[in-house]
C-alpha cells in the first residue's frame, strides 16, 4: 500500500475548494511564466524532469522508526528547468498520480499542488536564488545551495499543510500538535530531499551545465559569441 499524498477527507470541502482555487491560480501563473523558460532544448528536458520526479517519488526512504519519506521534487525541478516550469512538472506528476495511481485524493488535488508544487518551489527556489546571489558561482556552491534550498522546502510544505489543516481540518486534533509532528518528521525527510536534489543537480552540472536553469548565470561567460556573428543562432554542440 503506497499512498503518499493527502487523501480525501483530511480537509473539509470549503477549504479544499479554496486550496483548489489557489492551485488553479498558481498553475495559471506558471503556465504564463513557463513560456519564457521553455524552448526547443528545455521543453524535452522539462518533460524528462517531470518523469524523473515521478520515478523518485516512488522511492520511499526510511527516516525514523516506522516512517519513510520521499522526494517532493519542487526545488529540484525549479533549479533544473526554471521555477514556473518546475511548478508545472510537479503538478503534472500529482495529477497523474491522482488520476491513474489512486494516490492523492481528487478533492485534495488543490491541497497537494499548493503544498508540494507551489510552496516547495516558492520557498526552495527563492532560497536557492538568494544563496547564489551571495555565494561564489562555482559548481560546488551551486550544489550546496541546492542542498540547503531543498532541505528547507520540505518543512515549508509541511507548514503549508498545517496551515491548511488549521483552516479546514476535519478532525479536532490541536494545530500545535499537528505542526510539531509534521515539521519534525519533515525536517528529517528534507535531508533526503536535499541529498537527491544536490546529487542530481551536480550530475547534470558535470555533464551539461548549460542545461541547469538555476545556474545559467554561472556559465554565461562560456556562451559569449564574437560580435557581428549571427546572434540568434544557437552555438553548435557536438
Amino acid at each position: 500500500m503506497r499512498d503518499v499524498h493527502v487523501p480525501d477527507g483530511f480537509i473539509n470541502a470549503p477549504v479544499s475548494i479554496a486550496a483548489g482555487a489557489v492551485a488553479v491560480a498558481g498553475v495559471g501563473v506558471a503556465l504564463r511564466g513557463a513560456r519564457r523558460e521553455l524552448d526547443d532544448r528545455t521543453a524535452p528536458l522539462a518533460g524528462l524532469t517531470a518523469a524523473f520526479v515521478f520515478a523518485a517519488q516512488m522511492l520511499n526512504f526510511p527516516v525514523a522508526s516506522g516512517t519513510s519519506g520521499h522526494l517532493l521534487g519542487g526545488t529540484l525541478a525549479a533549479i533544473l528547468v526554471g521555477p514556473y516550469t518546475g511548478v508545472l512538472c510537479v503538478s503534472v506528476v500529482l495529477l497523474m498520480q491522482g488520476l491513474l495511481f489512486a494516490d492523492g485524493g481528487l478533492t485534495a488535488l488543490g491541497v497537494n499542488i499548493t503544498t508540494m508544487a507551489l510552496a516547495t518551489v516558492l520557498v526552495g527556489y527563492g532560497l536557492f536564488r538568494v544563496l547564489l546571489r551571495v555565494l561564489p558561482k562555482t559548481r560546488a556552491f551551486v550544489a550546496g545551495a541546492s542542498f540547503a534550498a531543498a532541505v528547507v522546502s520540505v518543512p515549508a510544505a509541511a507548514v503549508a499543510f498545517t496551515l491548511i489543516y488549521a483552516a479546514g481540518g476535519t478532525t479536532d486534533v490541536s494545530v500545535g500538535k499537528v505542526a510539531a509532528a509534521m515539521i519534525g518528521v519533515h525536517v528529517l525527510i528534507g535531508i533526503g530531499e536535499a541529498l537527491i536534489t544536490a546529487v542530481t543537480v551536480s550530475s547534470v552540472l558535470a555533464v551539461r551545465p548549460d542545461l541547469v536553469y538555476g545556474a545559467r548565470d554561472m556559465i554565461k561567460p562560456l556562451q559569449l559569441r564574437p560580435a557581428g556573428a549571427d546572434g540568434s543562432a544557437e552555438p553548435s554542440r557536438a
Binding site: G66, H70, T170
Partner: peptide, 25 residues
C-alpha cells in the same frame, strides 16, 4: 523502497487526523 508510511501518513495516523479519511474514488 521503504514500505513504511511516509511522514504525512504516519503523523496522520499517530495524531488521529485521518479518522475521516475517505477511500480514493
Amino acid at each position: 523502497a521503504s514500505s513504511s508510511p511516509d511522514g504525512l501518513e504516519k503523523v496522520a495516523a499517530d495524531k488521529g487526523i485521518d479518522s475521516k479519511e475517505k477511500d480514493h474514488s
